[in-house]
């Protein structure tokens, strides 16, 4: 008969050690981007005297704020195990709609793009969550669709809508407080809220669960489909909002913007330590990833003699290093 062993095994020391390593790996995952960012800033400051100036830092911050807002939504999407390729197009569409609607005042300039871009996100979310179509395909269609819509309302890009010179809407993207542009504050604010949303709300926990193990999430009684829909809605609205800010900053809706921006956003998210397979990630990491891309671009501009396409080469290199390290860390943890 199966006998019952009541004896306790001595408290295993290895567990402690394992846990420390687990924590270390998590730490590297979470703060790796921050470490690299710090290093990059230090090195650039030493090598380029024009780098560590307030003006330059401000420039990087403003430049990065739009990508940051897009990447924030992308972080949520990727943590659920999905991908949103439409954000570049949606960003451009948001900008053009904002510029177009600004003739009626600041409120429409803000609300129209948010509504349209939100609707695109919602539609994508519904298709992904309820029909089981792959996010890659659905959002690729979204990318093409939003771009098409954009071309239609600008008559193939022939029309560029300008924001009226006296519109209060311009304040949103061009205003400054203590010498720092509003978009920077807004991005920081959104990241703060995003962090709370992800870490401290039931929705955020469900995002992790859906990405980490969709079957388990469903069996644990989470509304998996609704979580997915909400997440794509969020991503669409954030990309649209970034477009609004950009239109306000440029005083016009520029049709050709945002091509390939989705890839920058994905790169920033992954560099920030979010797992591309879903289930783990942080918004602070994403912020570091965005800033790192910003610093790289800035440094390459500083060098001047280098063609700016080198930015992609360097960013690409970083991406590969990060992914390799991620894989290594999670494999090690797996083999325990």
């Amino acid at each position: 008969m199966t006998q019952t062993l009541v004896q306790k095994s001595p408290h295993p020391v290895p567990v402690e050690r394992e846990h420390r390593r687990e924590r270390l790996a998590a730490l590297a995952q979470r703060h790796g981007a921050l470490a690299v960012l710090t290093l990059a800033v230090l090195v650039s400051s030493v090598v380029f005297p024009s780098f560590p100036t307030a003006e330059n830092a401000n420039g990087i911050a403003i430049q990065s704020s739009f990508l940051a807002i897009i990447a924030l939504g992308m972080t949520f999407v990727i943590i659920t195990g999905g991908i949103d390729l439409s954000v570049g197009s949606v960003f451009a569409l948001g900008g053009v709609l904002a510029a177009y609607a600004s003739q009626w005042g600041p409120a429409p300039a803000l609300l129209l793009p948010l509504a349209v871009c939100g609707a695109i996100g919602l539609l994508q979310g519904v298709l992904i969550a309820y029909t089981g179509m792959a996010p890659f395909i659905v959002t690729l269609a979204g990318l093409l669709g939003a771009r098409g819509l954009l071309l239609a309302i600008t008559e193939e890009g022939a029309n560029t809508y300008l924001v009226p010179k006296d519109s209060a809407f311009l304040e949103l993207g061009q205003g400054t407080l203590l010498g720092v542009g509003y978009p920077v504050y807004l991005a920081v604010l959104l990241f703060g809220l995003g962090g709370l949303l992800l870490q401290r709300t039931r929705y955020g926990q469900a995002v992790f669960a859906v990405g980490g193990s969709p079957d388990a999430a469903a069996l644990m009684g989470l509304p998996v489909a609704r979580i997915r829909v909400l997440t794509y809605l969020l991503s669409g609205m954030l990309a649209g909002f970034a477009g609004v800010l950009n239109a306000s900053r440029l005083s016009s809706g520029v049709t050709i913007l945002g091509v390939g921006l989705e890839l920058d956003a994905i790169a920033a998210v992954v560099i920030g330590g979010t797992l591309l397979i879903g289930g783990a990630g942080t918004v602070s990491g994403t912020l570091c990833g965005v800033l790192l891309l910003g610093v790289i671009q800035n440094v390459i501009n500083q060098i001047g003699s280098l063609n700016s396409s080198y930015q992609s080469v360097v960013s690409g290199g970083f991406l590969i290093v990060v992914v390799v390290v991620q894989t290594y860390l999670s494999r090690r943890r797996h083999l325990r």
Binding site: Q205, F208, A209, G212, S213, D215, A216, A217, L219, M220, L275, G279, A280
Partner: peptide, 8 residues
């Protein structure tokens, strides 16, 4: 099968 989320 254990149905929890391993990464959380």
């Amino acid at each position: 099968e254990v149905n929890l989320v391993p990464l959380m």
